[in-house]
Design a protein around this nucleic acid. Structure first.
Lengths: 195, 195
DNA sequence: AAACCCTCTTGTCATTTGGCAAGAAATCAT
DNA sequence: ATGATTTCTTGCCAAATGACAAGAGGGTTT
């Protein structure tokens, strides 16, 4: 397969206010990864060595409840940075699986190389920090929405703010992301139509 | 009331590897705050201007579910740094209340002063970053524990890892922190005793 | 076109959890 | 110390949610 780094280079150039040669050297430290639909990019128990930029495709992360049911914890669309932050930064076994929901093209930065850029490029460090703050805020807001809102309100929010998920994921995955079963989601949808 | 900064200064000295005069200048930018039992330190809707060091006492943060019931989201004991990260760093209205569960002594750093230290003291910045990573990880692990574990397992975990909470908070607060009602917690405790 | 697969919906039933209220126990205030 | 208040437990019942299974609908393959 031919390797075209234009999308990746554009992303890095846009993310980091650094000289062009630095943009190129950082970009070239990423490695192309291709995932087919249903392929796993990380499995529970593995220590993540991958910090991904998702050029195209669609991913989800998921774990299992106390009864063994899959529970989707996140959806990622093209343009996203994707990593199991806990496993990658703390080099601990992952608590979630990561899986492609459609054929995906990714660029991978390994842990050692991440550390090099983090310690030698202030802009990289600053971008990483900003990213972490945003990730923390998103997780906090999602956690609170699971408390503050009804399942129906969470469904309507998701439909409004992340419509792309409904093009890419099954209602079973969406239901578990909302904290309910596919049966309940089906009933909520029916109720909304009735209104 | 007499003001004794020894505990605060020791904390800062221990947290930041900087010269003693810097430890003292940073310490003296904190302002003493005293809270009586049940006093609020932040209310939902306010923009937080406070980054606290909790010298003594005990705090909780809480919000409300869709039916209006209080749900405790965090407990904080002496020695902790406490802030509504989202409200403080993004200067947005808080989504949670913060309340003292016992008379507490706190030290407060305001947003403007936080920014000054953040931009002028690399060690402060680095400490802040490490703190954020740990906060993110703790939130992620708590979120996953709400999925992976049963309420009984969460109860036993909490009892084992944070026994001080059981000295300071009511079972009603603990129950909502575990994601259940006080009625259910009471039944779980009964069941555990039976074993 | 037929067979197949996958997703989604829907009915029935079981289980879990919560609401409520009463009473016991512990704590606090005067 | 005594009364008042709060917390915790427990029983009863209602409501919400999930498990399971059947079936409809779409899309794909052969």
């Amino acid at each position: 397969m031919e390797e075209n780094r234009k999308n990746l280079v554009d992303f890095i150039r846009n993310a980091l206010p650094v000289a062009e040669d630095r943009v190129l050297s950082i970009s070239s430290s990423f490695e192309a990864v291709h995932a087919e639909k249903n392929d796993y990019l990380l499995k529970i128990g593995q220590v993540s060595n991958d910090f991904f930029y998702l050029e195209s495709g669609f991913l989800r992360t998921f774990t299992y409840d106390a009864r063994g049911n899959e529970v989707t914890t996140g959806f990622y669309k093209a343009g996203a940075l994707v990593a199991d932050v806990v496993s990658f930064f703390k080099q601990k076994p992952a608590l979630e699986d990561m899986q492609a929901l459609s054929a995906s093209k990714l660029w991978r930065l390994n842990y050692a190389q991440f550390q090099v850029w983090f310690h030698t490029v202030p802009e990289f460090r600053e971008f990483g920090r900003a990213n972490l703050v945003n990730g923390f805020i998103a997780l906090k807001e999602r956690t609170l929405s699971m408390i503050n809102l009804t399942a129906e309100q969470r469904y309507e929010n998701l439909l409004r703010t992340r419509p792309e998920i409904f093009q890419q994921a099954s209602l079973k995955h969406i239901a578990s992301y909302l904290g309910i079963t596919d049966t309940s989601l089906s009933r909520i949808r029916k109720e909304i139509v009735r209104k």
